[in-house]
């Protein structure tokens, strides 16, 4: 009974299905307001949002750490309350805080996690996990002797000890140095390649941009957007054209008003922002701008364009009537 295979969701390939999820804490704080979300099997989903937006609460409800006030969560078709055993068995959670039993060893704590999730001992699997996270040499070390980055790896190892199909990473690289961050991304990619669905929260946009297949933006307890990353950047991405001028300009001549130019670098440069959507029609307006500049006698010595990053998109989304 314990090892019954997870029921497949009927209609789509979503592995997590969140429906109308709300959470109001006893303090009266509304952390989640009717969140609907589907996570697809095998994807890397990044949940972005400012501090206090509800990222951790959402994860905590799905993983069973926090009771929902309304709504429900299905994990591979299993209700995470009524059918919590089947649901939780599929999930591995790496929490945000570095928490650990200070005095046990890396090996013991990771083995403990496997047993806790009801799996029989499998030293070969633990060894693989520790090796993939470069923890093998530290296996006999007590946790208290490890650095913050190493502890973070231990938490990931613990979450992977029971071979979950879904991995939650809550701010996995907070306080982790750049080299280690790259390593972790590598580990996450390998996991995804092995078929694990990954949900990570982060406020490093770079992380989402680098890793995610899809991105959800959460703001004040509401999912304001869920979108394929490339689509998102294409749709919302603005492009910027910067023109380095020959002679500084104090004021724009009136005939250029229509282009919405900005003067930058003390008049040394002009910035033109335009829609970067690749819609087929040539609507960028660059040709017209250049013609008008020429007509106005404004000459430039250099130019470059820049695609707005996910960070710009994110900031504009979160700022919007916030």
């Amino acid at each position: 009974m314990d090892d019954a295979p997870g029921r497949q969701p009927v209609s789509d390939n979503s592995v997590i299905h969140v429906e109308g999820l709300s959470k109001t804490y006893d303090s009266g704080f509304e952390a989640l307001k009717g969140v609907d979300l589907k996570i697809r099997r095998g994807e890397i989903f990044a949940l972005l949002g400012p501090n206090g937006a509800g990222k951790t609460t959402l994860i905590s409800v799905i993983c069973g750490l926090v009771n929902a006030s309304a709504g429900r969560v299905l994990v591979a078709g299993h209700d995470n309350v009524a059918d919590y055993r089947q649901a939780r068995r599929l999930i591995g959670l790496v929490p945000q805080e570095l928490t650990s039993e200070a005095f046990s060893t890396v090996w013991d704590t990771v083995s403990f996690s496997r047993g806790l999730f009801g799996k029989p001992k499998d030293p070969a699997h633990i060894e693989r996990v520790l090796k993939s996270l470069s923890l093998w040499d530290k296996r006999r070390n007590r946790l208290i002797t490890l650095s913050g980055g190493m502890k973070r790896r231990v938490l990931i190892a613990k979450a992977l000890a029971h071979e979950p199909q879904i991995l939650f990473l809550d701010e996995p690289t907070a306080g982790v140095d750049v080299a280690l961050r790259r390593d972790m991304w590598e580990v996450v990619r390998q996991l995804r390649d092995s078929g694990v669905t990954i949900i990570l929260t982060t406020h490093y946009i770079e992380e989402a941009e680098e890793m995610a297949d899809r991105i959800g933006v959460i703001r004040s307890g509401e999912l304001v957007l869920v979108e394929n990353k490339r689509e998102l950047m294409r749709k919302l991405g603005r492009k910027e054209l910067t023109l380095q001028l020959h002679e500084p300009l104090e004021r724009l001549p009136g005939e250029l008003d229509a282009h919405g130019l900005e003067i930058a670098e003390d008049g040394q440069a002009l910035i033109y922002t335009y829609d970067g959507r690749d819609d087929g029609d040539d609507s960028s307006g660059i040709a017209e701008l250049l013609a008008d500049l020429d007509a106005a006698g404004i000459r430039f010595k250099d130019l470059h364009t820049r695609q707005s990053s996910l960070e710009d998109i994110f900031v504009s989304l979160v700022r919007e009537d916030a």
Binding site: L65, T99, E101, L116
Partner: peptide, 13 residues
Amino acid sequence: SGSIYEILSAPVS
């Protein structure tokens, strides 16, 4: 220490 998260998220009654 906070490590109780693991017990609460485990498939145990």
